[in-house]
């Protein structure tokens, strides 16, 4: 692990955080998770009688750490309760905090999000908030003690990629916690771009689980995250308007 991802003093060899949502069945999910190389994977909290059991056993068997989310929560109080239930059920104080404003956009509600983040940090949680690509809000989340900030590239499940790369760069430029690009990734180049912009990791689910061949797309995302990270560390050439020959000038 010569370039680990470090969040709240925990090290991860993989910079790809996977979600488990959207997979057709647990067998496909298992192959995709293995191909992705992920070490941390999100789950949602739902009523016991709802469909979808078995995912915890799968993650345990694969040795992948679980990151509960608060998906579906519409207000701070509901998100805080869900996080506390997840902590009780799963024995982790890490939470991917999601507080969405409406079902059509699934965009984070910034007011409720910040309120929930502050309450959960005060309650001892390691909070990883899913946030808008808003550099000001990202700063505010960091200020209340979040362990990372996770701005969206575009709305959840759209696969529209990173619609405002400059905002992601602004967030990265001022953050002293890891920035995880979360939501909107559609294909491998989106994940690579996130890393080239300076994100510390990428969190994605739909792009893999609903691809025609999820395990193959998981492998693509893994390679893209690695490639983007290497390119970021290598330092890209400046973009220029006019051509610039790489061969010597012709002999006169």
């Amino acid at each position: 692990m010569d370039d680990p991802l470090v969040i709240a003093n925990r090290e991860f060899g993989s910079r790809l955080i996977m979600g488990t949502g959207g997979a057709a069945n647990l067998s496909v999910l298992e192959r995709a998770l293995v191909a992705s190389g992920t070490e941390l994977t999100t789950v949602a909290m739902r009523r016991l009688d709802a469909a979808g059991g078995g995912v915890l056993d799968l993650l345990r068997r694969l040795g992948i750490d679980v990151l509960p989310n608060t998906a579906g929560c519409r207000g701070a109080a509901e998100a805080v309760l869900t996080a506390r239930l997840a902590r009780e059920a799963l024995g982790t104080d890490w939470v991917k905090l999601e507080v969405v404003a409406d079902e059509q956009t699934l965009l984070p509600d910034p007011v409720e999000l910040l309120d929930a983040a502050e309450r959960l940090v005060d309650d001892g949680f390691t909070v990883l908030p899913y946030t808008n690509d808003d550099p000001v809000l990202a700063r505010r989340l960091e200020d209340v003690g979040c362990a990372a900030v996770m701005p969206l590239g575009s709305p959840i499940g759209t696969g529209l990629g990173i619609r405002n790369p400059h905002n992601i760069e602004l967030i990265v430029a001022r953050a002293s916690v890891p920035v995880v690009l979360d939501a909107g990734v559609g294909t491998a180049s989106d994940a690579a771009l996130a890393m080239e912009l300076g994100c510390s990791a990428v969190l994605l689910a739909t792009a893999v689980t609903r691809a025609q061949d999820p395990p193959r797309m998981a492998a693509a995302m893994r390679a893209a995250v690695d490639g983007g990270r290497l390119a970021r560390l290598a330092g890209r050439i400046p973009q220029r308007f006019w051509a610039h020959a790489s061969s010597p000038a012709p002999d006169a």
Binding site: L29, R46, R47, A51, V66, A71, L85, A86
Partner: peptide, 10 residues
């Protein structure tokens, strides 16, 4: 009473 568990998501 609400009884919750982890399911695929996120």
């Amino acid at each position: 009473v609400e009884v919750l568990t982890a399911v695929q998501g996120g």
